[in-house]
């Protein structure tokens, strides 16, 4: 498994894994061989809570184009959600 390219970060949020919802505290982002996707390499995301054990994990394996499209969509949606509401003038 062997680009080894991995970024890790702390997060605040929640994820739904095999045992239901849990608090997400950490994430790993890496471009490497997938477990399930049928590609040589994928962008892999693990949303984790190490305090709850290895099973507290939500995993995604995305093709490179899909991963970049997802990153753009996340940025756009978060920016839009944080903009003040535009109220159209009456009349």
């Amino acid at each position: 498994m062997c680009t080894y390219e991995t970024e890790t970060l702390n997060l605040q949020g929640s994820g739904k894994g095999a045992q239901g919802w849990f608090a997400v505290t950490d994430a790993s982002v890496y471009f490497d061989h997938p477990v399930h996707a049928q590609s040589e390499h994928t962008l892999n995301l693990d949303f984790l809570n190490p305090a709850l054990g290895p099973g507290a994990r939500v995993a995604l394996e995305l093709g490179a184009d899909s991963a970049l499209a997802l990153a753009d969509a996340i940025k756009e949606v978060v920016a839009a959600g944080q903009r003040p509401a535009q109220v159209a003038p009456a009349g």
Binding site: D26, S28, Y30, D46, L48, P50, G53, P54, R57, A59
Partner: peptide, 17 residues
Amino acid sequence: REAPGASPDDAAAAVRA
């Protein structure tokens, strides 16, 4: 040690992190 009894992919993710 990190992931006794965990599925292999969960264990690998925990060790990679």
